[in-house]
Write a protein that binds this DNA or RNA. Structure first.
Lengths: 148, 148
DNA sequence: GGAGTATACTTGTCATGACAAATATAGAAA
DNA sequence: TTTCTATATTTGTCATGACAAGTATACTCC
């Protein structure tokens, strides 16, 4: 029998780390009175880099499905951080843009993300971070291939 | 400004990998007609290793909060895979045990977990897996310390 | 032993993730 | 043009995670 040992499972530790990192990030956001979630930050980040993405494009960029992006962007719009604009050429499509209010908190959000990175990765040297990043990117390729 | 680049963020790639790994695992479980979720597997795994854990103990073991374990174990009990038994000495406490039906599928579940590990980690050699595991464990320590 | 506090667990609410179904618009084929 | 199919997005449902509030039992201190 191919028994799995959770104690030494990379997969399992990725799942645990993901949850813990999210908690840290969320706590730091709260401490800075930013009422935004890590997932909303993910979307807002992309829109701060380049405006005009559609729901579908954001879905690909963030590895989330249309439904999730649809709801996350609804909340961001209600919060006044982004705007959805119907495309003139294709009326099915929304183009999304960050608002001035959105841009106004981007720097703070980057700072929070930066802090939570430092907290999470303390004591892991640059070489090992490099190995981890490369491994994680490989996992994304492997899983993406399998799910196709 | 301490700008974060998602493309090279270990934190971010852990979050993405966690989601993708869960999708792969869930798909493999479905293909094997196992109607159990990765989180339910996590709880069932611990109970298959050793019976009698309380909700609180499982909560610590799985890094989830009481509320989540409470609901996950409810579903596992409804599915007939585990039993909750009131402790005689302390009537607030539940002791949890895997049932025969639960034990009957453990081997299949291990096999599914094993397969999803192989899919996710393909092309990552043992040394690098070791580095990743060590880094992830460090992240758990770091984040846990911060959240205390 | 009774009051207040601590502990173990449950329930409610909201955001998210998975997935299926619904809606609206585009594009292609007849 | 009409019809069929494909695409973009939304909505519904359920499981989970975070967090707050509620319930029941145990413990502590007087």
């Amino acid at each position: 029998m191919n028994k799995v040992d959770l104690e030494t499972s990379v997969n399992h530790h990725i799942a645990l780390s993901a949850i813990m990192i999210k908690r840290v990030f969320f706590k730091i956001l709260s401490e800075n009175e930013l009422t935004i979630t890590p997932e909303q930050w993910n979307v807002l980040y992309h829109l701060s880099e380049s405006g005009g993405f559609t729901v579908g494009e954001l879905s690909k960029l963030t590895f989330k499905d249309f439904a999730n992006i649809s709801r996350i962007t609804q909340k961001l719009e209600v919060a006044g951080l982004i705007k959805k604009r119907r495309d003139d050429a294709d009326k099915r499509v929304f183009k999304l843009f960050i608002t001035d209010s959105g841009m106004a908190i981007i720097e703070q959000l980057h700072q929070c993300a930066f802090e939570s990175t430092n907290i999470a990765l303390k004591g892991i040297d640059a070489d090992n971070r490099e190995v981890m990043l490369k491994g994680l990117k490989q996992i994304l390729i492997n899983t993406d291939t399998f799910l196709k």
